[in-house]
Nucleic acid binder design. Structure first.
Lengths: 167, 167
DNA sequence: TTTAATTTTCAAAGTTTATTGAAAGTTCAG
DNA sequence: CTGAACTTTCAATAAACTTTGAAAATTAAA
């Protein structure tokens, strides 16, 4: 495999993976390109490299910056903005986890806790609903706590404690 | 909130959550309905309850069975098939993790390991590509090992060891 | 067998989501 | 200020994904 092929495969694979994880393809591809880029890049260069429109590139670069996965850079004597990626893969994972928790887990937790207040009779339907939602709530809260710990943890703790334990 | 409202909210929320996790809405809604159902249900009943077409219902019930989230039941003197859900939420989480690992993580791991064979020169581009893909490979393998451990673990271990550790 | 109930398939239609690119907005050097 | 360089927006378009429903296949009772 040549370097060119490798880079293309990587960008395309990251795009596909992103798409199946609720991150859109363009955003994931830009992220992939920036991860393996040795230099910071302008919007123009990203557009060119990925054959992507200006609007799409701009929108997704913005989102990547919001997520903390890209940084802006201003070069002296140049009006263009340049971007470069957060390269610490551990930090990348934490930031993605943080955003997804916010977008997905939090609204569900909020809803689940409301089910405590459902007026129940003695029907099997009511019993089942209560039992199952209570169980899912318990499970989700634990998962949320774990995710929170992960988001706040540092790499050293993760590798030395958790991964050894899980061997 | 009445029981009826609660059930509807739960089904709709599970559908939305599923959609953002690469599980389609219909599949997630059927799963939600079955989780809170006290009885096993036929295709007809599911169609009715969720206002969903026969084809869609059938297709997604089949996928849920493949994933190990629904079971078939045959009632004597009745030709229809009935279905009921796996209710152990721990088991549900493990089965979903197993399927998603298979669908998503495995192909990426396979690709990542191939990047070792990329022919590199001494350019910064090549160096960066090698360095970053090697790092992501290492990280992904660890994540995969952890997921594997989770999939094989039992509930007791999870709650007593892992969650206490992560407090 | 035959027949009717039931399940499965799949092409077409519908819906949702992503992308484009031109136009509007912003910024800043001169 | 002004105008060129650059960024952002957004309505239209395209692509991707989901759902439908009627027809084909399967099943099992008679």
């Amino acid at each position: 495999m040549t370097l060119k092929e490798g880079r293309e495969n990587f960008i395309q694979a990251w795009g596909t993976l992103g798409a199946s994880w609720g991150i859109n393809k363009a955003m994931a591809q830009i992220h992939a390109l920036m991860l393996i880029s040795a230099k910071s890049m302008s919007t123009e260069e990203i557009m060119e490299e990925l054959s992507m429109s200006r609007g799409n590139t701009n929108m997704n670069v913005r989102t990547l910056i919001d997520w903390g996965l890209l940084y802006r850079e201003h070069k002296v004597g140049d009006r263009k903005e340049y971007f470069y990626a957060e390269k610490d893969i551990w930090e990348v994972a934490r930031r993605i986890a943080r955003e997804r928790r916010k977008r997905e887990l939090e609204p569900v937790l909020r809803l689940l806790t409301q089910f405590k207040d459902v007026k129940t009779d003695k029907s099997p339907e009511a019993e089942e609903f209560k039992k199952m939602t209570a169980e899912i709530t318990r499970f989700s809260q634990k998962a949320d706590g774990m995710l929170d710990k992960f988001i706040r943890s540092d790499e050293h703790w993760f590798y030395s404690t958790l991964l050894k334990l899980m061997k």
